Computed example of a mutant assay.
Amino acid sequence: MKMHVRKNDKVVVISGNDKGVKSEILEAHPKKGTVLVKDVNIVTKHLKASKNAMKSEIVKMEAPINSSKVMLWCETCKKGVRPSYRFREDGAKVRYCKACDSEL
């Protein structure tokens, strides 16, 4: 599955309980079509002690969300935008904002 976002991109969540949160992507899973966004979709996981030295604990961690629930954040527009692609003079393919025509 082709994804419009990558690791370390600044994104804004557009639907769900965390709607409107601006954060960055920690991991991207293109085969599943999901992304792991920092401080978004926090779940509680109960860990059981597996060794004598370990303690049982309750851990809060991020869970993946569908990549369609996030939009790329444009710093110049200050909003979520749809990226488009073009080639620079040096031949590199870059993403740019359709709204303000700035490079992302």
Rank of each mutant, 00 (worst) to 15 (best):
K19M: 08
G20E: 07
V21A: 02
V21R: 08
K22F: 04
K22L: 09
S23V: 03
S23F: 02
S23L: 09
S23G: 07
S23K: 07
S23E: 02
E24P: 05
E24F: 10
I25A: 03
I25T: 08
L26N: 04
L26R: 01
E27R: 12
E27T: 12
E27Q: 12
E27F: 08
A28N: 11
H29I: 14
K31W: 11
K31H: 15
K32W: 05
K32V: 14
V35C: 03
L36N: 04
L36H: 01
L36G: 04
V37Q: 01
K38G: 03
K38H: 10
K38E: 10
K38W: 05
N41H: 06
N41Y: 02
I42D: 02
I42K: 07
I42Q: 02
V43H: 07
T44E: 08
H46S: 13
H46R: 09
L47E: 05
K48N: 09
A49N: 06
S50Y: 13
S50H: 11
S50C: 11
S50F: 14
K51D: 12
K51Y: 12
N52E: 14
N52M: 15
A53V: 13
M54H: 14
M54L: 15
M54S: 14
E57G: 09
I58W: 08
I58Q: 06
V59G: 08
E62P: 03
A63H: 01
P64T: 05
P64Q: 06
I65A: 02
I65D: 01
N66Y: 06
S68Y: 07
S68H: 06
K69Q: 09
V70Y: 01
M71H: 01
M71I: 09
M71C: 12
C74S: 11
C74P: 01
C74W: 04
C74G: 03
